[in-house]
Computed example of a mutant assay.
Amino acid sequence: MSVRNIATAVTAAALGTLLATLPATSASAAPVPTPAGWESQALGLPAAQRIAQGEGITVAVLDSGVMTDHPALRGKVTTGPDFYKDGLKPGDPRWGRHGTAMASDVLKVAPKADILSVRVLDDKHDRGLDEGPSGPSPVGQGIDYAVDHGADVISMSLGGEMWGASYDDTEVNALARAAQKGIPVVASAGNEGDSFNEASYPAGYPGVIAVAALQKGGTRAAFSTVRTYNTVAAPGVEIVSAKHTGGWAASSGTSPAAALTSGVVALMLSHNGKLTPAQVRAVLTRTATHPPGGRNALVGYGPISAAAAVRASAKPPADGTSPVKYRGKEFFAEPDGTPKTTHPPLETDLVTIGLGAAGAGLLMLAGAVLITRAGRRRAAAQG
Rank of each mutant, 00 (worst) to 15 (best):
M1W: 02
V10F: 00
T11Q: 10
T17I: 12
L18S: 09
A20Y: 07
P23R: 11
A24K: 14
V32G: 01
G37F: 00
V59M: 01
H70D: 12
R74Y: 03
P81E: 10
F83N: 02
D86A: 10
P93G: 09
H98G: 02
V106M: 07
L116H: 07
S117N: 12
K124D: 12
K124L: 13
G142H: 07
I143Y: 12
A146V: 06
V147A: 01
V147C: 01
A151M: 04
D152M: 10
V153A: 14
G160H: 09
G164Y: 13
T170N: 15
E171H: 02
N191H: 04
N197E: 04
L214I: 04
K216I: 14
T225Y: 02
T225P: 02
R227G: 10
I239Q: 03
S241F: 03
S252R: 05
G273I: 00
T276G: 03
T276H: 04
T285H: 01
H290E: 07
P291E: 09
Y301F: 15
S305Q: 03
A308G: 03
A314Q: 13
E330Q: 09
D336G: 13
K340S: 03
K340R: 02
L346Y: 06
E347R: 13
V351E: 15
V351M: 15
I353Y: 05
A358H: 00
G359I: 03
A368W: 13
A374V: 07
A374E: 15
A379D: 08
